[in-house]
Design a protein around this nucleic acid. Structure first.
Length: 800
DNA sequence: GCTCACAAGATACCT
DNA sequence: ACAGGTATCTTGTGAGCG
C-alpha cells in the first residue's frame, strides 16, 4: 500500500510524492478499454491498429479489451476508434488518475502543513492580486516553527528574493494552507514570480539535496457565470489557482463548504472574511490598523506589520485547530481516494467510482466530448426540453396557504439514492425507454420506471452497487466501529469524518448522473430518478388523503399533513411503506424496496406562506423557519425584524386575532420615518465584476444594470472615502457585498451608499419595502383583509 | 406621456 | 463543472389609451 501525499504526471511518467520521498513510475503503461465484442467484430481494424504501432498491446480482461498506447498518442488512436464507431471506456484518464484507479494507494492523512498569509502594497486603486507588490509573508508550520519574510523599500530585488525564500520553506511541508488563498495569496505569489501563466520555482526537500523542482501553479480566470456549486456563497476574486505539484488547502473554501447551508452563520460572517469567521468562532479579531495603510506601516514601522501579519496566521492555526478543517478534509479525500487539490464534487467522486467499478470487473464510459452548451439559448424558439439539456426535477406542492394547527411531517430518507437502488438505475443496467402504462406487459427480467425507463432486474448495476457499498461502509462505521471507540479520541473523530464522507458520496451519485459533462451522464436515468420521485411523493400524498390527512404542503421528498385528534404517525408511515412496496412490486417489478418514509415530527402551529416558504413550531418549542425573508441575507434588516415579530406572534403566542395585526401594521407604518440608517440599508453580493453587467441579453438588448451594481460603481469611484479595506476582498469586485439606501423611487430606484447618505430616504418606498414580507404572511392568513388599505390608512379614513 | 402586463436577469433560497 | 424548482425585486419594452 502506497500512502501518497500528492500524485501527478508529465503525460508519461507518474510521480508519487510520499512522506519518504518521490517515487517515479517511468512510462506508466497507459491504457483504456473497449468492449470485447467490438474487438471481435472489428478484428481487421484492431489488427491494423496493432500493426501500425499506434497501439502497443492489447489484453483481454473479462468483457473488455485493454488497449495500451502512449498517452501522448491517445488522440490519434481514439479518433480512429470513433470513426470506426467503437465505444471506448475511460479513455480520458490521465496517467496519474489511472494509477490511482489501479494501484494499492491511499491518501496520506498525516501531512505537515504550512499556514501562511501575505500583505500587499495597498496604495493602488482597490486590491488586485498580482498587480501590487507583496510586502511580507508570515507562516506557521504544523510543527510549530514560525517564519516571517519581508524586505526593505530600498532593496530593488527584495520582493523576488523574499518570494523565493518562501517557496523554499514551502517545500519543507506537505501542504500549503491559507485563507481565501486560492483566489488571493497564491494568485499573488504565482503571478509576482512568473506572470499570469506562471509556475514558480523552488526546492523540494523530499528530493535528494540540491535537486531542483519546479512548483507549478497555474493562475486561471474564474468564469463569471460559474458560481462554483455552492450557490452564491463560494466565489470571490477574479482569478484562482491550480497548483500541480504541491498540495494547497484553502481553509476558507472548506469552511464555506462545511457551513454553506447555515443561513444564520452566513448572515453573520457574510463574505466569510477571516475577521468575521474568527470573531464568530474564536471570539478573536485581527489586529486593528485604525485605517492606516499597510504600505505606510511596512515602510515606517516594520515590526508592527510583522505583528499584524503574524496575528492573521495565528488565527488560521487556531481556526484549523478549533474546527479540524484540514483533518476532515484529509480524511474525506482519503475516503474518496482523491488528491487534496481535487476539491470539486465530481473530482472527488470520480476515482472512487472508477475503483468501485473495477472491483466489480467493469469499466465506466469515457467522458463525453466537450459540448459548448447554453441551456437558455437552446430553449429559445423551440419547444422546451431539448434533447439533452433540461430535464424535470422534484415536485413541489402548492401550499394550502395560511395558519394551521396539528401539522405532521413525513419525509423520504435519502429519496434519490433509494430510488437508484430500488430500480437498479445505472448506465450498465439500462435497457432503454418504452411507454409505460399501468398493467402493461414487459419482460420478466426487467424493472421499469413510471417514465418507461427499463433496467435489468437481476444483475445489480455499477452505481447501485457503489451506493450499497458506501451505505454499508457508513453503517459499519456508525453502528459498529464507532461504538467501540472512545468519544473525542482521534480515531473517533476520524471515523466520524469517514462516515460523513460516505454519506456525501451516496448523495452525490444522482447529481453526477445529471451532469452533462460527466461520464455518468444519461438524461433518461437522471430524469427517471426525479420523475419517479415525483410519482412516489404524489402517490404517498394520495394515500395520506385517503387516510384522513389534508396535504398542507410538500417539496420533493417531504409532506406536511394536517389531522386533528389522535394520530399515530409512525404506524401510518409503516402502513404506507408496506403499501408502496407492494405497489412498486406489482406495477414495476422491483426486486427489493429500499424506500423508507419516516416521521419528522409534529408542528403545533404552522404557517404555509408560499412554495419553499413556511414556518412551524414543534411541541418542545423549537421553531423551524424555511425560505422566509428572515432567513435571507439580501432582506432589508427592518423587513426581516418585523417579519420575525409576525412569525413569533403566530407561532409562539398563537395570536390569531386579525385586529391585533391591523393595529400592529399601523404602528409599523408610523415607525418607518424614524428608522435608523442601519435598519434601512440593503445589501447584495456582486456575483461578477462590474464591467460584466449590462451586456446584451438573449433578446439582443442591453440588460439593465441592477441598483447594487450602480452603487458598486460609485464605491469604485469614491474609494478614498471608504476607509480601511477589510481583508482580501475588494470593495467593489466579484464577491463583495454592496450596501445602499434608497433615496428616491419615482423614476427608477435611486440607491446611495451609506457613506453618501444625508438622512433623507424615500419613506413611502420604505413603508412598502419594510412591511412586504410581513404582509405576505398576513395575506396568506387573512386573504379577505385589504392590507394595502391598512398600510395606506384608507380603511381608517372611511371610518370618519 | 401615461399605465399595465410581460419578459428577463439577478440573487438567494429549498430539496 | 453534481442536479432542478421557486419567490422576489428590478428595469426595459411594447400595447393600449387619451
Amino acid at each position: 500500500m502506497i500512502k501518497f501525499v500528492n500524485i501527478f504526471d508529465n503525460k508519461k511518467d507518474v510521480f508519487v510524492k510520499t512522506k519518504e520521498g518521490m517515487q517515479v513510475f517511468e512510462n506508466y503503461p497507459w491504457h483504456f478499454f473497449v468492449d470485447l465484442k467490438d474487438a471481435k467484430s472489428n478484428k481487421v481494424f484492431f489488427q491494423d491498429l496493432l500493426d501500425s504501432g499506434y497501439v502497443k498491446d492489447m489484453k483481454v480482461e473479462g468483457e473488455y479489451v485493454a488497449l495500451y498506447c502512449p498517452f501522448l498518442e491517445r488522440d490519434n488512436v481514439i479518433r480512429q476508434l470513433k470513426t470506426q464507431g467503437v465505444k471506448t471506456y475511460e479513455d480520458d484518464l490521465r496517467p496519474w488518475q489511472l494509477f490511482l484507479v489501479n494501484e494499492e494507494v491511499e491518501l496520506e492523512t498525516d501531512q505537515s502543513i504550512l499556514f501562511f498569509d501575505i500583505e500587499t502594497d495597498d496604495r493602488g486603486v482597490g486590491i488586485e492580486p498580482g498587480r501590487d507588490p507583496i510586502l511580507s509573508i508570515s507562516a506557521i508550520g504544523s510543527d510549530g516553527r514560525e517564519f516571517y519574510f519581508s524586505y526593505r523599500p530600498e532593496d530593488k530585488n527584495g520582493e523576488l528574493k523574499m518570494l523565493r525564500k518562501f517557496v523554499k520553506t514551502m517545500g519543507e511541508y506537505d501542504i500549503l494552507s491559507g485563507w481565501n488563498s486560492d483566489s488571493f495569496d497564491l494568485v499573488a505569489i504565482a503571478t509576482r514570480i512568473n506572470g499570469r501563466e506562471g509556475f514558480f520555482a523552488g526546492y523540494n526537500s523530499i528530493l535528494p539535496r540540491g535537486k531542483r523542482i519546479e512548483f507549478r501553479c497555474m493562475v486561471i480566470e474564474q468564469g463569471s457565470k460559474d458560481l462554483g456549486g455552492l450557490d452564491s456563497v463560494r466565489r470571490s476574486g477574479k482569478y484562482k489557482t491550480k497548483p500541480i505539484d504541491f498540495n494547497h488547502l484553502d481553509l476558507m473554501q472548506k469552511y464555506k463548504e462545511m457551513h454553506y447551508r447555515d443561513t444564520e452563520l452566513i448572515k453573520k460572517v457574510r463574505s466569510f472574511s477571516l475577521s468575521a469567521v474568527s470573531m464568530a468562532t474564536l471570539n478573536e479579531d485581527k489586529v486593528d490598523l485604525h485605517g492606516e495603510s499597510i504600505y505606510k506601516i511596512w515602510k515606517e514601522r516594520p515590526d508592527e506589520l510583522r505583528t499584524y501579519n503574524m496575528q492573521d496566521v495565528r488565527l488560521l492555526v487556531k481556526l484549523d485547530k478549533a474546527l479540524n478543517i484540514s483533518f476532515q478534509k484529509l480524511v474525506e479525500h482519503q475516503v474518496c481516494c482523491a488528491r487534496l487539490n481535487d476539491y470539486t464534487s465530481h473530482g472527488k467522486i470520480d476515482i472512487f467510482a472508477l475503483r468501485g467499478a473495477k472491483r466489480l470487473g467493469k469499466h465506466l464510459p469515457s467522458k463525453p466530448e466537450r459540448v459548448e452548451r447554453d441551456k437558455r439559448e437552446s430553449a429559445e424558439g423551440e419547444p422546451k426540453g431539448n434533447e439533452d439539456s433540461d430535464y424535470a426535477g422534484g415536485f413541489v406542492f402548492e401550499p394550502v396557504k395560511g395558519f394551521h394547527t396539528n401539522v405532521y411531517a413525513l419525509d423520504y430518507s435519502s429519496l434519490y439514492p433509494s430510488i437508484i437502488k430500488t430500480f437498479n438505475v445505472s448506465i450498465d443496467s439500462f435497457k432503454g425507454v418504452t411507454q409505460w402504462e399501468e398493467g402493461m406487459e414487459f419482460p420478466e427480467d426487467t424493472i421499469i420506471m413510471p417514465t418507461g425507463a427499463m433496467f435489468a432486474r437481476d444483475e445489480i448495476g455499477i452505481i447501485p452497487s457503489i451506493i450499497q457499498f458506501v451505505l454499508d461502509s457508513r453503517n459499519q462505521i456508525r453502528h459498529v466501529d464507532m461504538k467501540k471507540m472512545e468519544k473525542d479520541s482521534l480515531e473517533y473523530q476520524n471515523a466520524h469524518y469517514r462516515q460523513y464522507a460516505f454519506k456525501v458520496l451516496a448523495n452525490s451519485m444522482y447529481g453526477i448522473m445529471g451532469a452533462s459533462f460527466s461520464r455518468y451522464y444519461k438524461r433518461e436515468l437522471a430524469e427517471g430518478i426525479t420523475l419517479t420521485g415525483q410519482y412516489l411523493i404524489k402517490m404517498s400524498a394520495k394515500w395520506c388523503e385517503e387516510h384522513g390527512y389534508q396535504i398542507i404542503y410538500g417539496d420533493s421528498d417531504s409532506l406536511y399533513l394536517k389531522k386533528d385528534g389522535e394520530v399515530d404517525l409512525d404506524k401510518d408511515a409503516e402502513t404506507l411503506k408496506v403499501f408502496i412496496e407492494e405497489h412498486l412490486r406489482r406495477l414495476f417489478n422491483i426486486k427489493t424496496c429500499h424506500l423508507y418514509m419516516s416521521s419528522e415530527g409534529k408542528f403545533d402551529r404552522f404557517l404555509a406562506i408560499e412554495k419553499k416558504k413556511y414556518a412551524g413550531i414543534h411541541p418542545d418549542g423549537e421553531i423551524k423557519v424555511i425560505g422566509l425573508e428572515v432567513k435571507k441575507r439580501d432582506s432589508l434588516p427592518q423587513a426581516a425584524a418585523w417579519q420575525q415579530e409576525v412569525i413569533d406572534s403566530f407561532l409562539i403566542h398563537g395570536e390569531t386575532d386579525s385586529r391585533f395585526y391591523v393595529s400592529w401594521v399601523r404602528a409599523c407604518v408610523n415607525a418607518v420615518k424614524n428608522l435608523s440608517p442601519k435598519e434601512i440599508t440593503f445589501q447584495k453580493r456582486l456575483s461578477k465584476e462590474i464591467e460584466d453587467y449590462g451586456k446584451d441579453n438573449k433578446n439582443g438588448r442591453a440588460q439593465p444594470i441592477p441598483v447594487h451594481v450602480k452603487v458598486a460603481q460609485w464605491v469604485k469611484d469614491n474609494l478614498d472615502k471608504m476607509g480601511q479595506k477589510d481583508d482580501k476582498i475588494n470593495l467593489y469586485s466579484q464577491g463583495s457585498y454592496i450596501e445602499w439606501i434608497v433615496t428616491s423611487s419615482k423614476n427608477g430606484i435611486v440607491g446611495v451608499h451609506p457613506l453618501a447618505f444625508d438622512g433623507h430616504f424615500d419613506i413611502p418606498y420604505y413603508v412598502d419595502a419594510c412591511l412586504a414580507p410581513s404582509i405576505r404572511i398576513l395575506t396568506s392568513v387573512y386573504p379577505k383583509i385589504d392590507w394595502e388599505e391598512v398600510i395606506s390608512g384608507k380603511d381608517l379614513q372611511r371610518l370618519f
